[in-house]
Design a protein around this nucleic acid. Sequence first.
DNA 1: CGCTGCTTTGATTCGTATCAATAGCAGTGG
DNA 2: CCACTGCTATTGATACGAATCAAAGCAGCG
Lengths: 251, 251
Amino acid sequence: MTETSFNPSSLSTGAATGYGEPVTDCATCVVRNRAICASLDAEELALLGRLGRRQRVKAGHTLLWEGDDALVVANVLEGVLKLVVASADGREQIVGVVFPSDFIGRPFGKESPYSVTAMTDAEVCIFNRKSFDDFASAHPDLQHKLLRRTLDELDRARHWMMLLGRKSAEEKVASFLLEMSERLSGQGCNSGARSGFELPFGRQQIADILGLTIETTSRQLTRMRAEGLLDLPSRREIVINDRAAMEALAG
Amino acid sequence: MTETSFNPSSLSTGAATGYGEPVTDCATCVVRNRAICASLDAEELALLGRLGRRQRVKAGHTLLWEGDDALVVANVLEGVLKLVVASADGREQIVGVVFPSDFIGRPFGKESPYSVTAMTDAEVCIFNRKSFDDFASAHPDLQHKLLRRTLDELDRARHWMMLLGRKSAEEKVASFLLEMSERLSGQGCNSGARSGFELPFGRQQIADILGLTIETTSRQLTRMRAEGLLDLPSRREIVINDRAAMEALAG
DNA sequence: CGCTGCTTTGATTCGTATCAATAGCAGTGG
DNA sequence: CCACTGCTATTGATACGAATCAAAGCAGCG
């Protein structure tokens, strides 16, 4: 465990100071049109902007700890973060992976039900939770966006439950590769059967997502490569050669 | 498969007729203060009531099919229903269990991501989804309630992912019994270490919740009985003798 | 060049699924 | 009241998949 804590020491309600950089211009934000902020008009955006701070999070650092007071919520601007639930004896299960424009944190709740840790260097637009809760309560459109997003997340989580409870190691890895291929190769075109992408994390993390060990995960990938289903040009690169066959394996 | 479909054949937008009974008096509804309707005042309640119909669902009948158009949403008045995701080859994973006052269905979404099937005879207050979506969009307080509920469901689902991905059969069964004990023995007092309750479903369903087979589930229960942890007075009754020990097993 | 951490590969064990048979219970009708 | 039927649950024997334990390979970096 080399992970270290992000400590929002001088966090205060309202205009938070002492950490991060003030948000200067939401209008030019990279996720302006994809994040929940897309529901706001210029005036509202300026108001919310005053509550937020841009915050860099280095890979491996933890923004929220499972069980601790959920002091902050945030939008992801850049990088990839994981949501982790751990058991008393140290087993870990990744219960969510968030990308730019995704929302993190637990609004309207006291304790964070999971840890949030950066898997790559990341940048987030962070809010004091109470301030955000108040703002959201006063802005139905924002709340509507948040509701839709939460419903989508719930669907995704439930679909993942099927994978965790009922699929074999081979099916798990195949499903994982297909989902990552879709989420990582951008909203762009996935025309051909071949598709390559770079995973933002290593084998152990794949295992923690799939409920497997690192050895089993590695073996499955090696076997798929041997069968010509995929190439592994480098540790974190994956090229799916035969999408249809991969879909068949995913069950 | 003896499950049969509930077919809302003459479903129309607005005041739906031709199925169920019209809602006569929301004010005296058994779940009036616990369901999302609790956010509404008398006038709003009357409006929503006009959109709803009381509908009985017999045990084993399916209200919504995975992948089909999600035509309806509903509040549970009585009984217990399950949310099921199935794979092409017939494996099933129960991804949620809903009780009276819980909300079911997928607002703001076209396809239902899972099937909803009654585990016991049940009664629901059912709405045409589109009408409900419109009503919700116009009533921020209702939407707020729905958001909180969805966030809670998401937390529960993610917690369950840890169980499915990382826990042993013994830990799964122990966790399950503790959770059911809490959700079934009502909001009442759970004073003593001993607690008994009646499950609304059989062994196969427990297995489908835990991602196990019926045999493994049965063996774990028998073993726990042999060790004095619990009693099994009848097929569906469970008495936990030593709650602390059970919590230790749950991991 | 030789660390250091991550990944792959191999040998073995263990837990759970699978296959198969029996037991128990609920409902039905003689 | 009891025999019969169908369904659910339990119990047993065995097989298989993934975990575990152990070692070697490989890449990045001072």
